[in-house]
Design a protein around this nucleic acid. Structure first.
Lengths: 250, 250
DNA sequence: GACTATTTGTCCGTATGTATG
DNA sequence: CCATACATACGGACAAATAGT
């Protein structure tokens, strides 16, 4: 064993080297959000490449959500704070291209929401409990208004729980997967004839979940959260795929 | 309320429009993986834009993992099958830039692995059980060899469980988060003095988990999986953040 | 408000290395 | 080996947009 482990020589493009250097500077904190990159002409001098190369590198950095540039900006491209937008983008294409079924998405939401509730039940503050109360109150008001405002309040509730979990990864994934699921089923829900009854039932479920979170009973909150999500979305999942969801309900 | 809801007019760049059209063609299945795009010169004619614009669009598409282009290829850029590589990339930068702590990453792994085991216990086939057996066997052999081969076998086990869960999203996220965690702690583990004892203990835990999966006891498998992961990684997590992990162990 | 300087967005032409037949 | 077509990279140019005077 052993011997020299040569790296495969790959003709790395010029723009890639530019991307790497800027990316590393951002990740190392040398460039912080809000700061500006040098102008394209300055960059072509510093990297000693042509402007086209600089621009291709900037496009890649922009696609990765690290910088943003506007025409005529005298300050150069702006370094952005990381947002889950790119994550959202790639997960969305994954959902559309790589044939993610609604069942898998809902199942993943059940996993995330249950975990968030489990953690929130132990770690929540009084302030966060108040947020959840307020969200449910808005859900109740929205029943008479529109499905859109109801859905917004529902999102706010789950968001508050996700924040209370203290885990940013849970928070971000919850946000991403939820918006994808809503894209897939919001028209169907909005057009349901018994929409109002569904909303009222959902509110009751949310209140039970919140009571468990308030009582600090994590396992119960997680179980109720899974059940709530199942009851709300199962009708839109093909019957053949529902057993996979039920497997989470023990 | 009401009134015409105008969209904010944003000067959409030419390369963006090119990206949109190609992206849509891929997502609608007009362009399938393995197919080739027209050459850059053909594209500048079809879109009636310049070469630079075409190239910037191709860089963005490449950054999103949708196409790949090599110099001298007579067939033009290749349409790729979607891979979680972009997802991996953006989640990695999220971990580095957005200050994700090791505690949060391990916590998320605990959530994913527990859910995967819960589902696997009900949905696994005999074939998948055999894979898990084989992985544990390789772990046992690797104890005398090296930490690297042990880690590889360990990865294979968790991968088999994730596949057996039947949820691609769990599978992909497991893969992504695991590699990030391993990047952060693999040197520490490899350099541990009581490495061998740790490996043996870990094997025992994995066997208990597998026994629960084989018995079809999902909740038990999930609980053991969480415990296994905690015991393996907790020492690398700052003491102040361990309570957040313990909150998952009920 | 208008003018000017600078920057980005876009286009064109050209040279070079590479892969295919 | 040669010819062709391609991607890569360079440099120059002009219009549109922005910021400061």
């Amino acid at each position: 064993m052993g011997g020299p482990r040569f790296e495969p020589v790959q003709a790395v493009r010029a723009y890639e080297r530019v991307v790497e250097q800027v990316e590393e500077a951002i990740e190392r904190g040398v460039l912080t959000p809000g700061q500006r990159l040098p102008s394209e002409r300055d960059l072509m001098v510093q990297f000693s490449v042509s402007r086209s190369t600089v621009r291709e590198a900037l496009r890649v950095l922009q696609a990765r959500g690290l910088v943003r540039s506007r025409p005529g900006d005298p300050n150069g491209a702006e370094v952005l704070a990381f947002s889950p937008a790119t994550l959202h983008k790639s997960m969305s294409t994954l959902a559309r291209v790589s044939e993610l079924s609604l069942a898998e998405l809902v199942q993943f939401r059940m996993v995330l929401d249950a975990s968030a509730n489990l953690l929130a039940a132990r770690l929540r503050t009084e302030e966060q409990l108040a947020e959840m109360d307020a969200a449910i109150a808005r859900m109740r008001e929205a029943v008479e208004e529109s499905y859109e405002s109801f859905s917004a309040a529902d999102v706010a509730f789950h968001d508050a729980v996700a924040r209370a979990s203290g885990n940013k990864l849970i928070q971000i994934c919850t946000d991403v997967v939820r918006s994808i699921v809503l894209d897939l089923v919001s028209e169907k829900i909005a057009g349901a004839s018994d929409r109002k009854a569904l909303m009222l039932e959902s509110i009751g479920h949310h209140e039970e979940v919140l009571a468990a979170v308030r009582a600090g009973d994590g396992p119960l909150a997680a179980r109720l959260a899974r059940r709530t999500m199942y009851d709300y979305y199962a009708v839109y999942v093909p019957e053949g795929e529902r057993p996979a969801l039920l497997a989470l309900l023990e």
